[in-house]
Computed example of a mutant assay.
Amino acid sequence: MQRDTLSPPDTEHRGFIGLLPANLRPFALLARFDRPIGWWLLFWPCFWGISLAGGAIREWPLILWMLLGAIAMRGAGCVYNDIVDRDLDRQVARTASRPLASGAVSTKAAWVWLGVLCLVGLVVLLQLNFNAQLLALESLLLVAAYPFMKRITWWPQLWLGLVFSW
């Protein structure tokens, strides 16, 4: 089986991504919708936290909000990372075919897509109580700093671990 030359070498184009219209696929890839492990790392602690608080049965709406928020905000983080790293990504074989680095998505379109994902995240944020909203907003500082950690440390994944642990 031959790999699609437009897809990154570390992605799968089958399944959900392959069902999308061709003009939407680069945006789905930009948000890493083809790699669910990132939003799993955000969603499952939310689910278990709600479950351990005794809400697994009665709090299904909140659980679904957490799922939507995990998918949207992980996607937003990936889009932001690719916007910041687009010039570096062009120079690395593994990342050169990413939608921004390859030119499949313009920087302006990526900013708009980031805004859409953040708006979805805002709708989810507004479903939470005030303390949870503050904690979520504080996490944005760690998220915003992550792409720059690659420039000042040899351990950017340690920083990413802090982001996901927040």
Rank of each mutant, 00 (worst) to 15 (best):
G38A: 10
W39M: 13
W39T: 08
W40M: 09
W40L: 12
L41N: 02
L41V: 05
L42T: 05
F43D: 10
P45I: 00
P45F: 00
C46V: 01
F47E: 08
F47G: 08
W48L: 13
L52D: 00
A56S: 06
A56R: 04
I57K: 14
R58N: 11
W60R: 12
P61R: 11
L62N: 00
M66T: 07
L67K: 00
L67Y: 00
L68E: 01
A70L: 01
A70N: 00
A72Q: 04
G75V: 07
G75T: 06
A76P: 02
Y80W: 15
N81K: 09
R86V: 11
D87W: 15
V92R: 08
R94P: 09
T95L: 15
A96I: 13
S97N: 14
R98E: 12
P99Q: 04
A101G: 02
S102H: 04
G103M: 12
G103H: 11
A104K: 12
A104E: 09
A104H: 11
V105Q: 05
S106H: 06
S106D: 05
S106M: 07
K108D: 01
W111H: 10
V112C: 15
W113E: 03
L114H: 08
G115D: 07
G121N: 00
V123P: 03
V124D: 04
V124I: 14
L125I: 09
L126A: 02
L128K: 00
F130D: 06
N131S: 03
N131M: 03
N131A: 06
L134M: 08
L135Q: 00
A136N: 07
L137T: 04
E138P: 01
S139L: 12
S139M: 08
S139W: 05
S139V: 08
L141S: 08
L141F: 11
L141Q: 03
A144W: 05
A145K: 12
Y146C: 03
P147V: 13
M149T: 15
W155I: 13
Q157S: 12
Q157Y: 12
Q157W: 10
L158H: 07
W159E: 06
W159D: 07
L160N: 14
F164C: 12
